Amino acid sequence: MYTGNIDELLGCELPIIQAPMAGVQDSELAIAVCQAGGLGSLPCAMLSADGMVEEIKLIQRSTDKPFNLNFFCHSMPAFDPEKQQRWQTTLSPYFQQLNAELPAAENGASRMPFSHDIADAIEPFHPRVLSFHFGLPEPDLLKRIQHWDCTILASATTLQEAHWLEARGVDAIIAQGVEAGGHRGMFLSQDTSTQISTTALVPQIAQQVRVPVIAAGGIADSRGIQAALMLGASAVQLGTAYLLCTEAKTSSLHRAAIKSERSQHTALTNLFSGRPARGIVNRLMSEQGYLSDSVADFPYAASEVTALRKLAESQGLDDFSPLWCGQNPSGCVEISAAELTLLLACESGMIDCQYLHDEPYPYSI
């Protein structure tokens, strides 16, 4: 079990990490969290190299504090026309209902894995923290970034994955419980029955690894933070709690779903990308089954669903939108991400609450 100082490892003042959330945030959210003393994160998996560079420049112009760059490490499967056609056939009736033509199958993907080209783009910025989802980069690429003197984080959803990551030299392990919103970081197996709760996962990993453990999944307030730390975590990572913050780019339809009773029903689904991810149940999930064998491979499956999403959202419908959300949306408040980070730190006993206001803070989570 790790007994060192996680703040020194991460370079931030507070052991609070904002989870990288592709599609609902950009540099603005990361900056706000960094300025409050937490570790802000920039999701890079859906950014081009040029877009990534621009976002990094924006962060570095706004703060001199460390921030996290997050990447996917999936193996790109060969494009399978037959699987793609089967997926298109499944979705065809929805296009007809929206009076639109089914788009041609595209041999392209919106989510690309970390590569030497990406490393070339970010190396000049001397990144302080890098985090990875779906495992780690290939050995030669991992060795390259380990020479950058940066902190490397990676997600584990099982004890087996945690051991695998530690054996390859990660500096800290993000223990992602099944409650977490968005994509599961699972990479040694795609069997969702292996996925367990944060409260079960964190102590198991913390007891058996020597690197610090970062708890993620279902943590929405100070009670969740304190519980995670008591279970052996050295820090916490929150994503869903930031979805309603003023700096988040969460769409109006997504925000409305989070604020409604619908957010009490989330499920793991592979329908939006081809990999299991947790979101608020909507029409596509209800009608096609949460986990379907007819879905095209990740990340190619997203192409047709993205087209459906755009058509439906233009009509004010979230029927085909990936409404990523964890199982505990109770901490979502419509305030600045900086305020939320300070509030979490205050109510967790990390800082003096007088640091916020002389009067009682207007929000409580």
Rank of each mutant, 00 (worst) to 15 (best):
P124M: 11
F125R: 15
F125T: 12
F125S: 14
H126E: 15
P127M: 12
P127R: 11
R128D: 11
L130Y: 05
L130M: 10
S131W: 05
S131Y: 06
S131P: 09
F132S: 03
F132Y: 08
H133L: 14
G135P: 01
G135R: 00
L136T: 11
P137G: 01
E138L: 14
D140F: 07
D140Y: 06
D140G: 06
L142P: 03
L142Y: 00
R144M: 13
R144P: 02
R144Q: 14
Q146L: 10
Q146N: 15
H147S: 13
W148S: 05
W148F: 07
W148Q: 05
D149E: 13
D149P: 09
T151W: 00
I152S: 03
L153A: 04
A154M: 01
S155Q: 12
S155E: 05
A156H: 04
T157M: 05
T157G: 03
L159A: 10
Q160P: 07
E161G: 01
E161N: 00
A162Q: 03
A162L: 02
A162Y: 03
A162K: 03
A162W: 00
H163L: 05
H163N: 05
H163K: 10
H163T: 07
E166K: 10
A167I: 02
A167G: 14
R168T: 05
G169I: 02
G169E: 00
G169F: 01
V170F: 05
V170S: 00
V170W: 00
A172N: 08
A172P: 02
I173E: 02
I173K: 00
I174L: 03
I174Y: 01
I174Q: 02
Q176R: 06
G177R: 07
G177V: 09
G177Q: 05
V178S: 15
V178A: 13
E179D: 08
E179C: 01
E179P: 04
E179Y: 02
A180P: 09
A180H: 09
G181D: 01
G181M: 01
H183L: 06
R184Y: 00
R184T: 07
R184D: 03
R184A: 09
M186W: 04
M186G: 04
M186I: 04
M186V: 07
M186L: 07
L188C: 01
S189G: 07
Q190A: 14
D191Y: 02
T192R: 08
S193N: 13
T194E: 15
T194D: 15
Q195H: 15
Q195W: 15
I196H: 09
I196C: 08
I196Y: 07
T198P: 08
T198A: 10
T198C: 13
T199E: 13
A200R: 13
L201F: 04
V202D: 08
V202N: 10
V202I: 14
P203T: 12
P203N: 11
Q204Y: 10
Q204A: 15
I205H: 00
I205C: 03
I205P: 04
A206K: 07
A206R: 08
A206W: 03
Q207C: 12
Q208Y: 10
V209I: 14
V209S: 08
R210S: 13
R210A: 15
R210F: 15
V211N: 08
P212D: 12
P212G: 11
P212R: 11
V213L: 12
V213F: 11
I214C: 11
I214Q: 09
